[in-house]
Design a protein around this nucleic acid. Structure first.
Lengths: 356, 356
DNA sequence: TTTCAATTTGCATTCGAATGCAAAAATGCT
DNA sequence: AGCATTTTTGCATTCGAATGCAAATTGAAA
């Protein structure tokens, strides 16, 4: 295969000496020619672990540097069947949890020599599109922190694309998962609330279809019951700040039996709820009303909020997620695994003794 | 070129009928074989604008659907020299401005048939790495909302990779830019401050190396002077919440001649500043101290803050950025262009009449 | 029906790097 | 030095889709 067999109609310029047509990027053949070696040698030079003598490596590297040669990841991907791309699926909604996760995952991927192909997914249709795109781009794997239906997952599975779920999973399906289990922390917080004299609580959940929301709600319900706190009412939000604020409006806060604490299944809603309580209902949080969140996003600790919340160890979870993806890329038939992390209570200042 | 010339050692299975080795993804050859046409026909079917008869298209599409065929973007990229990937560079720091921009840009890219390859860049070294990676992955273009030195830009330029700067640019270098010019809004806000009786102000800037910070600072200084407000002091932050809080500590707020308003060159610092004023210094914002920000990020309008700020039209800017990238990909020699957008004042509630 | 143009189709090659295999070179051993 | 090993190197092919060109088909005009 002649690499560059002088196009049929030589455009009068570019004679033998010029190694590189202006603007065209150097290929391994160009480097080989300049170094006086074979293309294979160049290829091996850039592939760690190949059999290459020091002398050869030196010559090639010199030529490569001169031509600013870097291997073409696209061509490499074609032959190796590895794109080094990983699709990362997050929600595009204004929920600071996602950017935090996204950035952490991106860093970890980067450290592992992989690149993040970003997808924002906020509906089933989005997810369908993502799956096709991921397929087209031959991503090595998918890390999903957002919507994905069982059917969609099945498609990826059939196509042998490794998927790691980030803080979500299908209970009745084998899948690879990093997950933060907040059960102990829920108990801890609820017990504390009980000790502080709270007897009535309300909860703001996420969409009922959402597994994380359901799971957290379940834990909260159980813990409340166990600690002698009554769950007066539950309203549904959608994880956004606005829905937290709106949620509070739906809750009857006056009269006997009114809740003295609101538990929100994520921080964004908790912050919305807190702001609503303070600025619209003119309540003092935590004196008049205690509020609890989930996630432990950076912003929840700003001094306007100082939310009492249950943090996920996002850093360690991201690290795990990336490691699991690389493992599954190496050994696709490896059995599925669920790595569970403990949450941690951030004491915050959004809970206090129940008003009398 | 035989596509699938039956591996030398046929593993006793997979005889002639089975069109697809289990797990292998279908290629255009597989589709061609099943449909009884040539590979070129399949290729043309999936390339809009190619010369194909309706009958042929139908046959191919039927076979393609059956095999779940989707063109391989990697292989396509190799031959067309278009990867359909765009590197998006944002800062990984906790500044909600970046996620907002990132998500908007990603959506717009997606609508244009491009995918975002995400890079978080927080130092020159990061940027060096990004440039090499972008080169390796043959990205069609780069949208940079973060650090990039002139030298780094020069490298990309030499390699003919189109770059669009998002809200930053090199003044003494031709470059393609979307930019939000807040000059009128600065004047508007400062005038309002003046009308409210403010005579002394302080400012919290970003790093002095940062062009956006310098530009905003310059505008603020000029406007203050023009409106008879004295700039008592300027302290330097790094665009983060924490640095806004720390910045306020450095400002002498008591005694005659103390500033009655703090202007922060971004919202994150303004929020940090506001929280610090309220919770540590126990000041009433805006009664005791007015605060102004820049960017208009979503969070700045949460009711804990209701920051008076100057918003960038991120949506329209992102749209433009993507359009400019695609234009430059089509016509690399097109002259550079700088699209400037107007800011908009968000009145907010963080400024009030100067205390007496 | 014949002829010519327009459209459709297929052939063969190309993009750039990786890799199995065989040839060549370097090394070790006697 | 002579021979067997081990290590390097190069050759040729491969990955999957796009495309220039020529052949084949279709359609229109005469």
């Amino acid at each position: 295969m002649a690499n560059n067999p002088r196009k049929k109609n030589p455009p009068e310029d570019e004679s033998k000496v010029i190694p590189l047509i202006k603007g065209r990027r150097a290929t391994s053949y160009d480097v080989a020619r300049l170094a006086g070696v074979s293309q294979s040698a160049v290829s091996r030079c850039f592939k760690p672990g190949s059999s290459i003598s020091g002398k050869m490596r030196e010559r090639v590297m010199k030529a490569a540097k001169e031509l600013e040669y870097q291997p073409n990841a696209i061509a490499r991907g074609l032959i190796t069947q590895r794109s080094n791309l990983v699709a990362v699926l997050v929600s595009g909604r204004l929920n600071l949890y996602y950017p935090e996760v996204l950035f952490k995952i991106t860093e970890e991927l980067s450290a592992a020599g992989l690149r993040a192909l970003l997808f924002t997914v906020d509906s089933e249709d989005d997810a369908d599109m993502v799956i096709e795109q991921a397929w087209q781009f031959q991503v090595d794997g998918v890390i999903s922190a957002s919507h994905m239906s069982k059917e969609q997952y099945a498609v990826l599975e059939k196509r042998q694309i490794p998927v790691v779920f980030f803080n979500r999973y299908f209970a009745d399906h084998p899948n690879t998962v990093v997950y933060c289990d907040p059960s102990e922390q829920v108990e801890e917080v609820v017990k504390q609330l009980s000790d502080l004299g709270h007897r009535n609580a309300s909860m703001i959940t996420g969409p009922s279809a959402n597994m994380v929301s359901r799971e957290r709600a379940r834990l909260v319900e159980t813990s409340l019951k166990r600690n002698g706190i009554e769950l007066i009412s539950t309203v549904q939000g959608d994880f956004t700040y606005e829905s937290g604020a709106a949620g509070l409006q739906e809750i009857q806060l006056h009269g006997s039996g009114a809740p003295t604490v609101i538990i929100c299944v994520n921080d964004m809603m908790a912050m919305g709820c807190m702001d609503e309580a303070r600025s619209v209902l003119e309540l003092d949080v935590p004196k008049d009303l205690s509020i609890v969140g989930f996630d432990g996003i950076g912003m929840s600790q700003f001094s306007s909020y100082e939310l009492t919340t249950i943090r996920q160890p996002i850093g360690r979870m991201s690290e795990s997620a990336v490691r699991m993806i690389t493992e599954r890329v190496e050994r696709p038939d490896q059995s599925h695994e669920k790595r569970v992390f403990e949450g941690a209570v951030i004491p915050g200042g959004s809970i206090a003794r129940a008003p009398t």
